[in-house]
């Protein structure tokens, strides 16, 4: 009796999963056009530059509960230059914009997409916060305070 129940429960769970996946895919395809993006920024950090006051990197995750958007520019009142770059196994290149997919996220993380920060107005130290102004094509400017963390820091560590 109980085995029979467990079995049908399992099948039910499987069906529910398929339905959920179907819904997610549909949402993904249909909301890219006109829906407004709903953005939030998580886990921003700047590893302390290896050369004091030297070139730094910025990492963060942009979560999007709405339609697709693009990160088109990043500036900071505390640094003369912030540019968007992408690392691959062989190269590092500057990029003009980074896609924020609908109902997805844009990850700026080590060994991938990242911000390059130069010309600090004050040499960054552990515990400092740098303001970054993230300019999105649709959502406008999102201001984040980004903490300076140890050189080898990872979110959650």
């Amino acid at each position: 009796m109980s085995r029979g129940f467990r079995r049908s429960a399992l099948i039910g769970a499987g069906l529910a999963t398929v339905l959920a996946a179907g819904t997610a895919v549909v949402a993904c395809q249909s909301s890219g056009g006109s829906a407004a993006p709903k953005l939030s920024v998580a886990d921003p950090y700047i590893p302390l530059p290896a050369t004091p006051g030297g070139m730094g990197a910025g990492y963060l995750t942009v979560r999007n509960d709405g339609g697709a958007d693009q990160l088109v520019k990043v500036t900071s009142p505390g640094a003369g230059s912030v540019t968007m770059h992408r690392s691959t196994e062989q190269t590092m290149e500057e990029v003009g914009a980074l896609e924020v997919p609908a109902h997805g996220s844009l990850n700026l993380a080590r060994n991938g997409n990242h911000l390059m920060i130069m010309d600090w107005s004050k040499q960054p130290a552990l515990g400092d916060e740098l303001e970054l102004d993230l300019e999105f094509a649709k959502a406008g400017t999102v201001v984040v305070k980004v903490p300076v963390k140890p050189l080898t820091y990872r979110p959650g560590s």
């Binding site: 079995r7 399992l10 099948i11 769970a13 499987g14 999963t17 398929v18 959920a20 996946a21 997610a24 895919v25 993904c28 992408r86 690392s87 691959t88 196994e89 980074l98 896609e99 924020v100 997919p101 109902h103 997805g104 996220s105 844009l106 990850n107 993380a109 080590r110 060994n111 991938g112 997409n113």
Partner: peptide
């Protein structure tokens, strides 16, 4: 049945992640 349920879950996960990671570069 257990296995096929697991396969369905796996399939669902793949579909979701394909959706959310479509433009993140994938360097990592």
């Amino acid at each position: 049945r257990l296995l096929s349920a697991a396969a369905l879950v796996l399939g669902a996960t793949l579909a979701l992640s394909a959706c959310s990671s479509s433009s993140s570069g994938g360097g990592e």
